[in-house]
Design a protein around this nucleic acid. Sequence first.
RNA 1: ACUCUGGUUUUGUCU
Length: 325
Amino acid sequence: SVTWNSLLAAYAQTGHLHKAESLLDSMPGHLRDAVTTTIMVNAYTQAGKIQESRRIYTSCHNKDDFTSSAMIHAYAQHGHLHEAKQIFDTSPHHDVVSWNSMLGAYTKNGHFHEAFLLFQKIPTKDVVSWNLMIVTYSQTGDFASAIRFFRAMDLDGVHPDNVTFLAVIEACGSQADLLLGRAIHSEVSHPDILLVNALIGMYSKCSSLEAAREIFVSWPCKDVVLWTSLVSSYAENGRGQESLHLFQSMQLDGINPDQVTFIAILSKCAQAGLLHAAHTFFSCIPDHGLVPALDHYVCLADALGRSGWIEQASELLDLMPYEPD
RNA sequence: ACUCUGGUUUUGUCU
């Protein structure tokens, strides 16, 4: 059973759903257990096939906490809150992942009050329970609550991880709270690249470009996302020339910009009133094998408009090969 | 002691 499931999981995790299905078909019935069901429910969820998840789940009698949580998650991903809750309510016992899955079902679908009520009922909250609340508050702009829950988590004796830190660091950036951002940064012990990226964004929003740059430099393996953050940080702080220069350095480092790189940079240029830099960045989009997208035109028009070139902005929107919306 | 057959939370994105 373990052997079959291992292979099944390997197929499922690498996105080979068809191979997983045929393996399941050739798998002796008496070897199919709750693990088998959970793997398949999850595989179908990842492929967006909720009906298949449901079919496997309901037709199978081997279920445990893991299977139920996987199915709650499956329903939640597709907005089927009622079905998710039904599974949650009908299971006799909940482990913390089961609670968290139901909590995530509420937060993902915007049912924040229900989420809050459920959160309070979780007997033993773990770091994921807290993260779900903190991330949700941070993403919905309630930064004060994010920080409040971050403190409460500590009082509850649960240690923050990088997911927690990322969410509260983002909250600090959004509030331009440099002191708190620094304080929380000092609590970080093992940052990963995601957190490093958030720290760069936070320091940039707090106008501490030098701190942002230091963090960037100290991270050994920069990817396109990290470079994009740094270049747009300079643009965000009105440093057009340096952002153009860094953009060159990025390519010397072997990193190719993509569509998002240009959207991120151009939008910061527009906000900071860097018309010249915006124009230069826009002009070199084709040099990288990319076609300027609607978003790029909108950003450039925005930059023109904010610099007082209203007519040129609307002219650009008229001439671009897209329909404005 | 930790050690992976399965479930829950987090990266760059303008208007």
